[in-house]
Amino acid sequence: RARRLALIKEKAEALAASEGLVLVDDAGLLAEVAGLVEWPVPLMGKIDDEFMDVPEEVLVSVMRTHQKYLALRDKDGQLAPRFITIANIETADKGAKIIAGNERVLRARLSDARFFWDEDRKTDLSARKPELEKVTFHAKLGTVSDKTDRIEKLVAYFANIESGFSFEDLSQNASDEVASEAAALCKADLVTGMVYEFPELQGIMGGYYAALQIGDDKVGNAIRDHYKPLGPNDAIPATSEGRLVAMSDKMDTLAGFWLIDELPTGSKDPYALRRASLGIIRMLIEGGRRLNLDGFINAAMQNYPASLSASSGDSSASERLRLFFI
């Protein structure tokens, strides 16, 4: 399989280079494709120009998730209107029919994505917030609307600590107004058509919609980044506002699950709580920022109903969460 993977990568890169293009780096997809074919034959297809103004993350997601196509970039780093599919057979027509069939399927997929992109932009994110009351965050922790309210309160907590909260590695301090607006809208894209169809685009689409509807890239960037980091190899949010919303979101999740005593055990961590805590730690360390951890934890837990802590039968949830961090 390793040999087949190397062969697929080599042939796909050569085909891309023949058109002055390069593969979008995606080791996971290459490995997946290597497990699907035995006689790899890379073929290049075309993306219709009418779809190229749809956000590139949408195009890549459609190609990657649904079709297992390799995306390509041009010499300027822009997404190219081309894709590579890995066939499992050599044909007399050099793959012409296979390419045509794949282009037809992709056209239908992208038409759906185009529809969601156009329809979603007709409704402001702020107008979607009431719909979050119908989306459950966790049976014991309320709705996503409740979670959004708590995130807003934690972002305000940072503003109370220091107006224009700063990180040493960033030249610009956080704008309290931008952080507050991003917090209020950070989950609104969960009820858009695009994210319903492509859940992996949550946050990303909210960033696009906010930037277009509000006319402020800073709010959009904070929303886009607030799920970061998604793992040890993912970057932390690039802006102060994005970090404040991200840390607030993660600490709210941690506080809630500690209050209801649903903690990670051994290798099981279904709610990615370890990742959430490590994300907060990374943002503080890489940002060169010190923070009163006890105060942050207590602020997060106080946003939940007092009955939640009482029902857990354990008043030391905050202490246990503090120990989890250290």
Rank of each mutant, 00 (worst) to 15 (best):
L5C: 03
A14G: 05
L15E: 08
A16L: 02
L21I: 14
A27D: 01
L30V: 08
A31Y: 08
A34D: 12
G35N: 09
W39H: 13
K46G: 08
M52G: 07
D53K: 09
V54A: 00
L59Q: 11
K68P: 09
K68C: 13
R73N: 11
P81K: 00
R82A: 11
I86A: 06
A96M: 02
A100S: 10
A100P: 06
A108H: 14
R109A: 07
R114V: 00
D120E: 05
P130N: 01
L132C: 04
K134C: 00
T148F: 13
E152N: 14
E152L: 10
E152V: 15
F158P: 14
F165R: 09
L170S: 14
N173F: 10
A174W: 04
S180N: 08
A182H: 08
K187G: 12
D189R: 02
M194W: 05
V195D: 02
E197P: 06
P199Q: 01
G203S: 07
Y209L: 15
A211W: 15
A211T: 15
A211S: 15
L212M: 05
I214W: 06
G215P: 15
D216G: 13
H226A: 04
G231A: 09
N233I: 09
S240I: 01
L254E: 13
L254M: 04
S267I: 09
P270Y: 04
Y271P: 01
L273P: 02
L278A: 06
I280H: 08
E286N: 11
R290K: 03
N292R: 08
D294Y: 15
S307Q: 09
S316H: 00
A317S: 07
